[in-house]
């Protein structure tokens, strides 16, 4: 039962991933692509949690910690560059 719910949740998150990817590929300005990048990173965190649940290894969650910290750094760097500040 719980497995089927996880399958459906991952499929829904995959559709969201495709929509954000469409915005990344098409986005008119650079800032649109940065927003899509941020969204793609958070959906990837959900994917990592699903992979850890499927494999049953708690050590995989450390990658999600690194992800949640470091996607932030890329977005900050781009925003400072766009603001003529870096």
């Amino acid at each position: 039962m719980a497995d089927i719910l996880i399958y459906i949740a991952t499929a829904v998150a995959g559709v969201a991933f495709l929509l954000a990817l469409y915005r990344f590929l098409k986005g008119p300005t650079a800032a649109d692509r940065v927003v899509a990048f941020d969204t793609l990173t958070l959906i990837s965190v959900v994917f990592i949690v699903v992979i850890a649940l499927g494999e049953g290894r708690g050590i995989y969650l450390d990658v999600a910690v690194i992800y949640a910290l470091l996607s932030f750094l890329g977005v900050i760097a781009v925003a400072r560059y766009l603001e003529r500040g870096l």
């Binding site: 089927i4 829904v12 998150a13 929509l19 899509a36």
Partner: peptide, 19 residues
């Protein structure tokens, strides 16, 4: 499972809003 499904539904809303 239901909480994960709710979270995925919010992610889908975010994707639709992004497009």
């Amino acid at each position: 499972g239901i909480l994960m499904l709710c979270g995925a539904a919010f992610l889908l809303l975010a994707g639709i809003g992004l497009v």
